[in-house]
Amino acid sequence: MRPLFSETSAAAVRLVVAVTFSVTTIFIDSRFNALTLVRQTIKTGLWPVEQLSFLPGRLLSEVIQWSQSQNLILQRLESIGLENQRLKTEQLKLHTLRAENAELRRLLGVKERVNERLLQAQIERLSNDPFIHRVTINRGLLAGVMMGQPVISADGLVGQVVVTYPNAADVLMMTDATHHLPVQVMRTRERAIAVGVGRMDRIELRNLPDTVDIVPGDILETSGLGARFQPGIPVAEVKEVIRAPGQPFAWVVAEPLAPLARLSLVMVDLSKGE
């Protein structure tokens, strides 16, 4: 009879050791988040590689810019000037509304929301893994970015900072399958938890009461529960409300307002985490 372990090769032993090491590392990283320092160190070391990989794209955009005609640039300048004028007018209205809001809040005895400090950041790269909705932005610890800070765009919420490095930060988008976000319906103030499903164009509200008052077209905004996001940041638009006959719960499908797949500029809300 052949003994069971007589042909155990050195390669198999090495494989077992490697698998044990890997599984332990995965467990520690995903369950306890204890390897952030290792991740930060590696990411800092990868900085030159990342800069080198951005070089072809940057060169290409420089060439495109250079090849654009002067007329086109003048036209763009003109339209930007007009847009700037319009935004200035809007800003004046905003000042008035802010003052009015502050007065109303004072009358109602509600604490004023202060410290809205937004930091502009550029998205440098999107994770190439199709199941991970993470982007790297070009601002990090040195610019005051901290873990947990909300990231927004002109259209609505993008996600939150999950890892910070000296000159960069990783932002987990709200559509990632591991992201959960407390939201409310703008029209009815109905609260729910929006979960990512791993698709850029979709988040879901699950297990809502069948009688919930949500209709397609409703806007979802952050509810402020959990104290991570300020209340009132627009999140998504309801596209579909699924009420299966015989099921006690309704299911809501919504589309993020921010064009997550096409974003290039975002804002980090520095007032959170301070």
Partner: peptide
């Protein structure tokens, strides 16, 4: 780190 997956995967 580049893919953003759990370390060890």
């Amino acid at each position: 780190v580049l893919y953003g997956t759990a370390l060890g995967l």
